[in-house]
Design a protein around this nucleic acid. Sequence first.
DNA 1: TTGAAAGCGCTAACAA
DNA 2: TTGTTAGCGCTTTCAA
Lengths: 338, 338
Amino acid sequence: MRQTRKPPTMADVARVAGVSPMTVSRAFKDGSSVSEATRTAIHQAAEELGYVFDSTASNLRSQRTGFVAVSIPSLNNANFAETVGGLSDTLKDHGLQILLGYTNYDIHAEEQLIEQLLQRRPEAIVVTGGRHTPRARKLLENAAIPVVETWDLPRAPIGHVVGFSNEAAVRAMVEHFVARGLSKIAFIGGDADRDTRGTDRRNGFILAMKAYGLDTGRLIAAGVPPISMREGANAMGRLLEEMPDTEAVICVSDLSAFGALTECQRRGVPVPERISIAGFGDYEIAGISVPSLTTINPHPRQIGERAAGIIIEALGGKTISRQTIAIAPVLQIRGSSV
Amino acid sequence: MRQTRKPPTMADVARVAGVSPMTVSRAFKDGSSVSEATRTAIHQAAEELGYVFDSTASNLRSQRTGFVAVSIPSLNNANFAETVGGLSDTLKDHGLQILLGYTNYDIHAEEQLIEQLLQRRPEAIVVTGGRHTPRARKLLENAAIPVVETWDLPRAPIGHVVGFSNEAAVRAMVEHFVARGLSKIAFIGGDADRDTRGTDRRNGFILAMKAYGLDTGRLIAAGVPPISMREGANAMGRLLEEMPDTEAVICVSDLSAFGALTECQRRGVPVPERISIAGFGDYEIAGISVPSLTTINPHPRQIGERAAGIIIEALGGKTISRQTIAIAPVLQIRGSSV
DNA sequence: TTGAAAGCGCTAACAA
DNA sequence: TTGTTAGCGCTTTCAA
């Protein structure tokens, strides 16, 4: 038996099964009316030929790809991975597949990514955050598919939103510290505006401190976002040296908070007795480290699930109105704060 | 100006620009011969109409999708994220885009995923590990595209391989401990055979211990893989209670090793004085925790980059022979071991 | 339940 | 440099 060079098509399967290509097409979609005998014969023929269904042709003809495009800042982040997991698991039951890309926290890279993703003709698109280049905004607006912005509550949403206020979440943390009688509070985060959620958190810190009439000068810029454990440790070192009377520190993420904690341990600074530490994200490490880390849980998986829910509804036929779902982040008080 | 319901096509752009659709097609591929004036006019027309190139049609006609399919066990794993990052960053310079899916460490889910991915007509496929269902194997063999198995050195490779021996890596760790005079060595890992790399590591442990004539009875099964920090901590608790004379423990990953470390800290068991701990993966936490963790660095990003290199070469025209690239994992001796 | 005809939007192949 | 023709492999639509 000579193997043909080109992979078999439905026409080949049809020939072997003795039916028309259209019947083969139907046999591969469940729910369409094909007699059981015919269906079995077709699948057998397909198996024999090693036929693999070709989505690219199906997609073009039916004008449906089954893709949902997703843009996240970084692959290597447990929180975003959870959101993608929630999206993917919910969408896959509806025959939708994630087309994933990442931006390295760069909105110009995001613009390029969005353009690339849209060329694949996704049926919906999920982006992280609410700040985009003007062209990226325009691309999303013109795409004529459901758009969901996540992890943020943008002032002027493009379409749907599933997120939370990073500012408000950090404000709640400041309030927690103030209520425990702490006032010399620092913030460790990345430089500048690359990570817009990080910037929002820092702004939330500054606004909350101002609201209490407290000094907002204890800001440690720890490098290019996303800052990680190492940068958190370095930043804590600088904080302890430059402002040794600091009573509490809020870190832009749990990873930097854990780094900060280890630096305290290395220097023999007791946590939380000498200084309280808080993170953001409720990563697994926050519940495991000794002491465990006070943090904020933004329910990343739920963000993905709710976004998927909106998409499924929107693709369900009836045009739905724009939705904004506010997720409520939960303050997790643990051993690293008094 | 009335907006048409359907998105504009190349034909629409061609009409506005006063050229043929073919010229529009050329104007969107750089490298093809179109006069500068024509190209500018076409791009202007496209911008005006809000035209977005349609890959689905291009893919079908040219029989090239630009996809490289990638299957990993879990999204939420920094090591695999690194491999995907290495793949993605290397491939994107060659106009190739990752189509990513995950299996939750289940080879039956992998089979389904591979089938789905192949229907998208990727130009190459990268899978994690060398153990697959028979049908998955067959699908990969028949796909007539480059196949790369990673993170393992399969005995009977399907195509190319970029990986390392998990067994040998753990053997090296056992040798390290034995050389330091430790002999009561335990292994903490997940249950059974779900995570094949975890199983390989456990086997490597058992074989190495046997080679030294040491007791292989200190095996703690910590739950369904992938085990994480919490399970590592629980397992360490059991180990300390059931076999308190244990001198060293090798964990299937750094995450469980960190959990184990924290359990020791909670119980006041000094590490490494009373017990040495080692992990696997060289995650960031291994270098940051106090004490830092002895571990094995399998160079996950390099795995991705080398896999991408093979793919680029294989798609470059000349049919290349099967390659097996053995990555050399590096033992990182740190504070958690004597 | 099954089939025939047409075409989704682009580009390979060839021609001018 | 530009255009014409045909067709990638499916599925929509209509008919039997």
